[in-house]
Structure formats: C-alpha cells, structure tokens
C-alpha cells in the first residue's frame, strides 16, 4: 500500500509541499484525502451521534429507592439538629436527641449486620448490574467495532501531515500502524487519525448534541471514579448514620435565646436613637 502514498507526483497545486528538510518528503495522494481522511472523520462523527441517541433510548431513569431517600433525609435532619441545636429549648433538644440516638429504635440506629454494601446491593438488585452492563456495552461495543472496521479498511495509510515538525516521541502517537522509522514524525497514519478523532471530537459533540451528551465517556468514567472515592457510589449508609449519631452525641446544648433579650434591647435602643 505504501506505493500509493509515494506515487502521484504530477498534479501540483493542492499538494502540501514543505521545505524539504527531510530527504524523504512524502507527497500525499488526493485520493487518500477523499477516500480515507474525510470518510474516517465523517464516520466518527456519525457514530458519535448514533451512540448518543442509542444510549438515550436505552437509558432508564432510576426510581430512587424509598429507603435510601429516607436515609438521606434522616442524615440531613440530624445535621440540621446538630447545627441549630442552640436555637431550640433544652427540652426540645433532649427529646429529639433521644429520638435519634435511642439504642434500640432510634432513627440513626442501624441494627448490626444490616449495613448493605455495594456487592450485596448488586446481588439483591439485578437491575443495577443490568444498568452497568448496558452502560459498558454502549461504550465498548461501538468502539471495538469501529476500531476493527478502521483496521480492516484503512490500515497502513499515511493520511495527513501536520504543518509543524515534532520530536520522535510523538511517533507512537501519530504513526500508529506503520512501522517505518524513516518517515517524518509530522505525518499522521490513518489509525492514529482514528484515535485523534475518538478523543478529539468531544468539543464538536458538545457543540452539536448539547452539553450532557452520552458520548462523553471519559467524563462519565471520571465521575463514577470520583463517586467511588468519595464513598457516594458504594457508600455504606450504616456508616453515615453512625457518624451522624456519634456527632449528635457530642453536641452540648447551650440555649442561645436567654442572651437574645439583651441583644434585642440593644437593637431597640439603637432604633430609638436614630
């Protein structure tokens, strides 16, 4: 196939000729532009759009589990109690604290062995595994297919040339698929062009499909990883509740209202003076 790139010297004007710093200054055939470069880019864009709509169709809006909602709300309310404890009378605070922290039936008390983790949830809820499968499938299958397709039809072309010189280290990035050390690094092989498109079209997709398009795999992967780290994804509600409970145990109630009378007096005095 390499002969094809090297031939075609006659036609002139739209060939990119650069100062022949290298001895082997390649001239790329226009046919390559028309039959490799343009179709490859077009197909990548179209596949991206297609994937967006397919994953939109496959997406199921998860119905939040009532128990999980309740746990979240309990934590929220306990935090409010911790923060605002000093604004309610002592009796009201003690009552609430007892209600939350009761060893047997308190809201924040989690019976031992009930803390469910990610795996247990997966086992009990096949939908969750299904969802993840779907997500992964919609990510991996098209990528494998397009890669195979590109490999089959377009391997071995030198598809483009970038208009500036690069160091040897870029060779593996730009000349994936052609093992010729003599070719200048600024030439881009077709397979590398595929990779460049795969990662570089994100901006274009967010332009034509809107901000939260499904094509944005990397972003999504990052998000799940973040959630994993933060403990949100596979978080253990028992742990959160326990932490809140301990926090609430430590709160010392000191009613701030008795001082408010003096403060109110000073506010009123100030009003009278002005």
């Amino acid at each position: 196939m390499h002969e094809r790139e090297l031939e075609g010297e006659g036609e002139a004007s739209d060939y990119l000729r650069y100062p022949a710093a290298m001895a082997n200054d390649l001239v790329l055939d226009t046919q390559i532009r028309d039959w490799v470069l343009a179709p490859l880019s077009l197909v990548m864009v179209l596949i991206g759009v297609l994937r967006h709509f397919v994953s939109k169709m496959m997406r199921t809006t998860p119905n939040p589990d009532l128990k999980a909602v309740k746990e979240g709300q309990i934590v929220l309310r306990a935090r409010f109690l911790k923060a605002g404890a000093n604004h309610i009378p002592a009796r009201a605070f003690q009552m609430r604290k007892a209600y939350y922290n009761n060893e047997e039936s308190g809201l924040l008390h989690v019976p031992k062995g009930q803390g469910n983790n990610m795996q247990a949830q997966m086992l009990s809820d096949p939908n969750m595994a299904m969802d993840m499968m779907k997500k992964n499938l919609s990510m991996i299958i098209p990528q494998t297919l397009t890669f195979a397709w590109v490999n089959f039809f377009f391997s071995g072309f030198v598809a483009a040339k970038i208009p500036f010189p690069l160091t040897q280290r870029f060779r593996s990035m730009l000349q994936n698929g052609i093992d010729l050390s003599s070719v200048d690094v600024s030439y881009v092989s077709s397979r590398s062009w595929y990779f460049l498109n795969l990662f570089g079209l994100r901006g274009l997709f967010s332009l034509i499909l809107g901000e939260d398009n499904a094509v944005d795999d990397t972003q999504r992967m990052m998000q799940t990883q973040m959630a994993m780290q933060m403990g949100g994804f596979g978080s253990d509600p028992a742990k959160t509740l326990g932490a809140e409970k301990d926090g609430l145990d430590l709160v010392q109630h000191e009613w701030v209202l008795p001082k408010s009378e003096q403060r109110a007096e000073s506010v009123l005095r100030h009003l009278l003076q002005t």
Binding site: S260, A264, V267, H270
Partner: peptide
C-alpha cells in the same frame, strides 16, 4: 417566658422591624 425570648430573638433577627414581635414582647 420562652415566648418572650423568642419574640426578643425575632426582634434581634429582624432588626426591630417586625411589628408583631414588638407587640408580642
């Protein structure tokens, strides 16, 4: 007595602009 304290805190929080709280005190 508690009511008076809460009226007082209303006055404090509203900067004395709340008429009901003033009457309440």
């Amino acid at each position: 007595r508690t009511a008076r304290k809460y009226y007082a805190s209303t006055i404090e929080l509203s900067g004395g602009k709340n008429m009901r709280a003033l009457y309440g005190v």
